[in-house]
Design a protein around this nucleic acid. Structure first.
Lengths: 337, 337
DNA sequence: TATTCATGTGGGAACGGTCCCACATCAACG
DNA sequence: CGTTGATGTGGGACCGTTCCCACATGAATA
């Protein structure tokens, strides 16, 4: 149905080589021929076939993005969605398209799928098992990780400095005079949550606070409902413990916890300060707006795509770990004790 | 770098036709040969080249999704992101991949891009100009619209019954005894906002309420900040008007407005009820949780993909307008007067 | 015994581009 | 006047599949 370069050539009375040259701009073409060919292309609304082009050039200009998510939403995720947005936007400016898949079970299936599609590169978001990495490494496709498990060997990765962010949070809360801080920690199998908690706890001790194991509760997931539930379950303990602040290892958990508090007539921040991590969209929308450690989600996505492009173009990439510094965003959910 | 079917054939000592037959399962192959070939495929981790396959089969198994957005976020959008999620998920189960682009200027560029990529079908989300539709129609690619301008002729489209939803909202608020309702209407160039307002206003009159033009304020966009600002700008008027309820044509606007109210010590819902439309994720997370007219976002996305698949497979599609009924979700931001 | 048919395999064209190589023309130069 | 080089064009191999057609074999049937 679509026109081919051959048909264009025929109508212009030239060879397909010439048409190809006109389109690509490579090689010599006389102005008359070029004009004639372009006119016919315009008239017929000929669109070069990217599939055929990929066939010979061995480049699809497609990038595969694999996100590991237990729960299905990929794209509308408040954190990963932002990273993805930036990847898509940057990809467009570099003339790539993005194909997204979710990997449910840390298996190799999603990678297989992308490999068959012959993507030019692969971006792995969130954590992946070493065996998946090894599998991908075995094929010679450029790839990198975003916000992944950085303990995998020799993999270029883009990450937030989670540990430093945790420290910033502790330092800020302690600076406000809080001595009793209740912490809701997301799944420790997830490196981000682990490091945020680690940084927070260490800094908390560094500030001279007594390590109090009771003050940390571990969540099974990092959802809003889980944050709410964590607060609910620990409510008697919380009330008895005279805590004046809550720190959660991400905003969604923090917001859930905060909702529980507000619902139970605890005044935030007057009675209890609440602090999160990530700076997702609704952190600023909530009432009170949430103080948080903002992660450069857009910058991370953008950088990931730029570096991947370099890898694809075989340009040297200096650093293996591309780190982004989070920064404190002070809002209304925290106040001095 | 990747192995080809030819290499596999050579190693198995058979022709590439035979290997092709083993892989596809079409035609006769003896068990011995099949076993041998499969073993080599396994050993070498041969992955069929989807590009070459697309070349000959004239099917890429890729679907293009074009979303019209003035502001850039595509994917992390609380409403369209959900639709997209459902499309991606459903596409995967039908063996398609999704390529997403944003169209910034209602031009034909995004469509061109997809056409060059030879996508098997096209999903247009949000509104598009007639000329873009005409352009696409000119090529013989299956396509449909989701939540678009349904006034375009002869286009299969998936929509929410926005007008009915507007009526439901009015009926509900009036039923609670509210007589003075302040309405924040999103951009009327957007059919959804227009219809929601239309349904709401009509039903409001049908309930015997005096049409009061002062009670409607028109927003320039449909963001949280705009909702907040609308409330702020109309605050003197609002206070003077003794309004007891606010209806916004989407949740984001409603949430913004509600935040302003709460911030100014207006008790929601005791003094003022607030109601939105869409049922985005944070509607239920907010405090108080937002009463809204829930749109079947996931169902719409899923259905869109299923119907597009039918179009691609040349199966008959009966109805041109595929409508989804919204349903009231009663939460804590509304109460009887 | 000759014919038919199921089973199994290989050869090669086709898909729509890119790009190398061959070749033609013509001006400039030694 | 032959050589060189710039300019311009066409032929055809190639990318990695699919699938049609030809063909071979052996058992069953007329």
């Amino acid at each position: 149905m679509d026109y081919t370069i051959k048909q264009i050539a025929q109508m212009a009375g030239v060879s397909k080589s010439t048409v190809s040259r006109v389109i690509s701009g490579n090689g010599y073409t006389s102005p008359e021929v070029r004009g004639k060919v372009l006119q016919i292309i315009e008239e017929l609304q000929y669109k070069p076939n990217a599939v055929a082009r990929a066939m010979v050039s061995q480049r699809t200009n497609n990038i595969g993005v694999i996100i590991y998510r237990r729960d299905y939403p990929i794209v509308s995720h408040p954190f990963y969605g932002k990273i993805l947005d930036a990847i898509i936007k940057t990809a467009a400016s570099l003339n790539y398209s993005i194909i997204v898949t979710t990997d449910y079970d840390l298996s190799v299936r999603a990678a297989d799928f992308m490999l068959e599609k012959r993507v030019d590169g692969l971006i792995l978001i969130s954590r992946f098992h070493q065996n998946v990495i090894d599998y991908i490494k075995h094929f010679n496709v450029p790839y990198l990780m975003v916000n992944g498990s950085t303990d995998v060997e020799g993999v270029i990765h883009v990450v937030n400095q989670d540990e430093a962010g945790g420290r910033q949070a502790a330092s800020y809360l302690c600076g406000l005079g809080h001595r009793r801080i209740f912490t809701i920690a997301g799944p420790q199998t997830h490196r981000s949550h682990y490091l945020r908690l680690k940084g927070f706890s260490e800094q908390r001790e560094a500030e001279g606070l007594h390590p109090d194991s009771q003050s940390i509760t571990y969540a099974d997931s990092s959802t809003f409902d889980e944050g709410y539930r964590m607060m609910q379950d620990n409510w008697p303990l919380f009330a008895a413990g005279q805590y004046t602040a809550v720190f959660a290892t991400n905003d969604t958990l923090a917001l859930g916890a905060m909702k529980f508090l507000i619902e139970h007539s605890v005044r935030v921040p007057d009675e209890v300060s609440v602090m999160g991590f990530d700076d997702v969209d609704h952190a600023s929308m909530y009432f009170p707006s949430l103080t948080t450690v903002a992660v450069e989600k857009e910058e991370m996505g953008k950088k990931a795509m730029i570096v991947l492009d370099k890898l694809i173009r075989q340009e040297p990439v200096m650093q293996q770990a591309i780190e982004f510094e989070p920064k404190l965003v002070l809002r209304k959910s925290t106040s001095s004790k």
